[in-house]
Amino acid sequence: MNIVVCVKYVPDTQAERTFNASDNTTDRVNVDGLLSELDEYAVEEALKIVEAGEGVVTVVTVGPAQASDALKKALQMGADKAVHVIDDAIHGSDALATSLVLAKAIEKVGMPDLVLTGMSSTDGIMGVVPTMLAERLGLPAVTFASDLTVGADSVTARRDGDAASQTIEAALPALVSVTDQINEPRYPSFKGIMAAKKKPVETWGLADLGLSADEVGLDAAWTKVTAFEARPPRQQGTIVKDEGDGGGKLASFLAERKFI
């Protein structure tokens, strides 16, 4: 089974994340970045599927030069090969354009049996690219899978909601986005880290995908960030001094905020 996993290089959630002052886009260059944690679940799921049978796992990313770090991590975990779509014109692309570039890249890789993605990025947190991508590729979209079983020509996924868990079946080829409940991503073994050095990474530009600069990027985006401001520092918490009435004060504090 051939699987393509779409991954994203995102600013480390532990780092001081910021935006570019010139165009309000996410700063991906001056902030430490890594493979989006939510995408690690998709990589892990792909590896488990292939390890239980056979096949090739290809990871695809769209991003600046630093995004090769995300691919490298996926290769270290065990993916077989990687594709990095990099083009200055892509800077500032919205979800629609990202899904367009990913779709073209996946078509160029060769239509796989299964496309896996994370449930969302940890920076944009929109979670819409998987469905857009499925639409562009003409694939059934199974989103937010917390369990996945792959058969010969179909997949069965469990989708946990607040009220019920749905079991969904889709014919292959299909696109499945996975949640952080689906597995426990491995950390790369030393052999995986050593082997990753020798794995193929293709680098494609827009022209390689038959796309032109005016189809992507900030100017083509349907949505734009018009302004941003840093979150104000957290206010110091209220300290209740117990003068024999501490319990009452705590209770009224909680009641005022409708916690009790």
């Binding site: 770090d69 490298k72 991590k73 270290q76 950390y187 790369p188 073994s189 030393f190 880290i193 050593m194």
Partner: peptide, 10 residues
């Protein structure tokens, strides 16, 4: 270097 860091992080 990056590879040694990856090993350390694992």
């Amino acid at each position: 270097d990056a590879e040694d860091r990856a090993i350390r992080d694992s």
